[in-house]
Design a protein around this nucleic acid. Structure first.
Lengths: 203, 203
DNA sequence: GTCTATACAAAGATAGAC
DNA sequence: GTCTATCTTTGTATAGAC
């Protein structure tokens, strides 16, 4: 009698294709990926990619939109929270991005790279455009540092957190650290970076 | 009698192809670029690409190696200078990268992206591997901050400088600034970033 | 050295059988 | 809904004329 009531199956063919597409697109980029790669990764016939998503481009749009949302749109509630301090917001952004990227390390490089390769499509992906510079965070920053554009703060925080993930391969090589040790370094940055920003705000 | 003595012509067909390849590869990435794109950009027949460089892959290797050198290897003399202070080194790195990227804004995203897409070829491109962590700069940093891995400093500095160039399109959009204004912001960072790092070293 | 023409392979997409 | 087979386009590379 405890029958499941029509749960969306996460192992439906459509979902399998989407998951596979996300993985392969992030790894190889749009033009480096063939629809056959995706079909192979999903373990299904290559004709089904077109059957479910009409074209490679449409499937890519879906994946890309999701990653842009994860990277940018989801921090909007944080930066527009009226009840938190500036320092709390920064810490929250740092913690969020670190958590996301530890789970899916490739997305920041993927998103920025594809936006660079296809700037004419940026409008399709980015919706919350002026979200950052008109945010509560920007207003709070201006009260402390009226001479500095708030975008400088955003770029600084994001650069310090995201960049090590984007260049991980290089940095891990030059430092000789293994995966576990480097992960520890990345987590250490969730404390190191706020300390730096604190100095920026007080000085 | 004042005859030029065999100057390498920068407008030779071979050079035109290399210049075109650099431009197109940086714009579209390896797999997004066709040899016809390169030939068109160079204004020559597409057969000549293979004639001069044997294959797309070999041509790419040449371009890529050059960009990696520009981005990483060329700062080695700076970080290994025995006569400069830590703060001077950091300022020099910042000034160098800012200058390079203002002239050629795409290279950091290009290099990191291709290294990510083709990690198995990283050995071909990166030679000065342990250069950073065994540098004079690393030694000097350890004297001030023995508890922090010097790679944290490197990642922080590079992240703060390079990241705004990598996400320029996004940030310019969210800030509503035009090209000139955003360039000014980028230059402002050559002073803003060292001030932050100073706080990191003193605290 | 440079061009035209073309061979050859890879990739996106569709038709039609099951 | 899923498969096989195939059409078409695009892209890499080479042969051969000039």
């Amino acid at each position: 009698m405890s029958k499941q009531i029509k749960v969306q199956p996460d192992d439906s063919t459509e979902q399998k294709i989407k998951n596979a597409a996300q993985k392969v697109f992030i790894q190889k980029g749009y033009s480096g990926t063939s629809t056959r790669d995706i079909a192979d990764e999903a373990g299904i016939n290559n004709a089904l990619v077109n059957y479910y998503f009409r074209s490679k481009e449409k499937l890519f749009d879906i994946v890309m939109k999701e990653q842009v949302t994860t990277l940018f749109d989801k921090i909007l509630p944080i930066v527009n929270n009226e009840t938190t301090t500036l320092a709390q917001k920064i810490q929250a952004i740092i913690d969020y991005h670190t958590e996301v990227l530890l789970a899916q390390p490739g997305i920041s490089l993927f998103v920025l790279s594809e936006l660079h390769n296809q700037p004419e499509r940026i409008a399709i992906y980015m919706q919350a455009n002026r979200g950052l510079s008109r945010s509560v965070l920007a207003r709070q920053f201006k009260e402390v540092k009226p001479d500095i554009n708030p975008i400088q703060l955003i770029m600084t925080v994001m650069g310090m957190i995201l960049f090590p993930f984007m260049g991980r391969y290089v940095f891990q090589r030059t430092s000789g650290l293994d995966n576990k040790e480097f992960d520890a370094l990345l987590k250490e940055r969730t404390k190191l970076v706020p300390a730096l920003i604190k100095a920026m705000l007080e000085d």
